[in-house]
Every structure is written in C-alpha cells, then in structure tokens.
Design a protein around this nucleic acid. Sequence first.
DNA 1: TTAATATTCAACCATAAGGTTGAATATAGA
DNA 2: TCTATATTCAACCTTATGGTTGAATATTAA
Lengths: 120, 120
Amino acid sequence: MPGPSANKLDYTLVALADPKRRAILRRLAQGEARVTELAAPFDVSLNAISKHIKLLERAGLVQRRRTGREHVLQFEPEPLGGVQDWITKQTAFWQSSLEAMDDLLRREDKADKKIAEVQS
Amino acid sequence: MPGPSANKLDYTLVALADPKRRAILRRLAQGEARVTELAAPFDVSLNAISKHIKLLERAGLVQRRRTGREHVLQFEPEPLGGVQDWITKQTAFWQSSLEAMDDLLRREDKADKKIAEVQS
DNA sequence: TTAATATTCAACCATAAGGTTGAATATAGA
DNA sequence: TCTATATTCAACCTTATGGTTGAATATTAA
C-alpha cells in the first residue's frame, strides 16, 4: 500500500506479507547470502528476487554489503520488534476492554439484584 | 499481494499493513461498532472504509453480525497469534544461528591458538 | 583485452489496493 | 406507504506489487 506517507511499520508489514520474502528472511536468519544464492530456490527470475530484496531493505529487514561485484545480504531483526509491539498493545487494549466490560456487567448485575430486592 | 495461492498469514499481514485498518482494529479492541461509526474518524468515503473492513474480514481479524440494517463489527485477535508465531520462530532461528556461529568462531579461535603454539 | 559473472536499471504487463461516485438493497420510522 | 438511514455493489481511476525480458554496469578471471 505505501504511498508517500507510509511509515516504518507499514513498510515492515508490506515486506512480511509475501511468502517469498518471508522465505528469504528465514534463509538469511541462518546466515548471510548473496542475491544469486537467495534467488536459487525460487523458480522466478533473478530480477524478481532483486525486487523482493529491495522491499526488504526498504523495511530495514535486511542490510546490504557490497564485496566487489557481489551483494551480501544480512538479516536485520529490529523492525520485527515494531510489529510485536503493535500486536502487544492491540491485545492489551482489547483485554483491558474485556475486563472493563466484565466490571460493567457485574455492576449491572448488582443493580438488577437491587431492583429485584426492591420489587420483591 | 494475495493472488489465488495466498494463505491466512498473507491475508493477515496485508490487512495489518494499512494504517487505517490498524486504526479500525484499535477502535474495535475497545468494543464493537457499526460501519458508520468506524468510518466517522476518517476523511474518506464510507465505501472506502467498507472495503477496508472486507480485507479485515478476509484475514479473520473482525467478525460481522447483522442487526437489521446495521452491521456490527467485532475484533477477533486470533490471527495476530499467527504473526507472533512467525516472528518468534524467525528470531529463534536467527539466535540459534548466531550461537552456532559463535561456537564456530570459538573453535576457530582455539585452532588459531594451537597453530600459534606450534609455530612459536 | 576479452569474456564470463553478479546485479541492477528500464520498460513493459497483469493484478490487487485504495479511492471515488452513483445506483441497488434492506430495514426503520413517520 | 413514503422517506430516511445503513450498507453494499458496480464501474471506474490511480498507484503499488510481482513478474517478465533485454540492456547497462561493474568486477573478476582468462
């Protein structure tokens, strides 16, 4: 989706949203590799993989180091922390809301009992 | 990205990759809401938000319940677990590789010392 | 220098997202 | 029954992805 106003988290999630890119990251988690090596397992063109790597770079998930004509890619886990933070906050919000609703239901229950007492 | 071969995780990550959709999820984490309510904070058309909600549904991140003419949306946190699992495995792979490399370096270091001893 | 290797760049195509407007549907309310 | 409200559907536009092929660049090796 990223237009001109996209932020880091957007880029990270876009980068992770493709199975080939996730496979590339898994591969890089075991150690650096060159573009050709990364492309080998896939049955698409080298150019296609080159583009995938660019999206991973944009997200900060890989870093590139040139050694002569070879480009060595390295896995950079930091942006994954941003995703985890978002998920953590999101579920935290949700759970606190559930607890709040629980309280509310409990209070309503008490009120109902009071009314029942008065009416009985 | 999802073509015909997209899986659940793909859909989840695509859904999370847009800030408006994340904002909708944050809103829904505090409690259910109707489409119009969800659309209110944004300066895009109701139709645009309707489409965003559809992508969230596709990912299983929200559930829809119709009450007369109103559609009530509810947050469904389950798919977020899949994202967390992936990240956990990815970083686990990476750390074990780092440790393996560490061992390797230590061994090489020992070997170097032996060589140094022999040569001295 | 010449030839092979490693990568990107450029141009192109198809599909999915993200948005718009206008019409269709369905339900609620006067 | 009319009319307003809540949502989706359909058609269209633009941009980003994901892919291709062919050419350009840079570096290594003969």
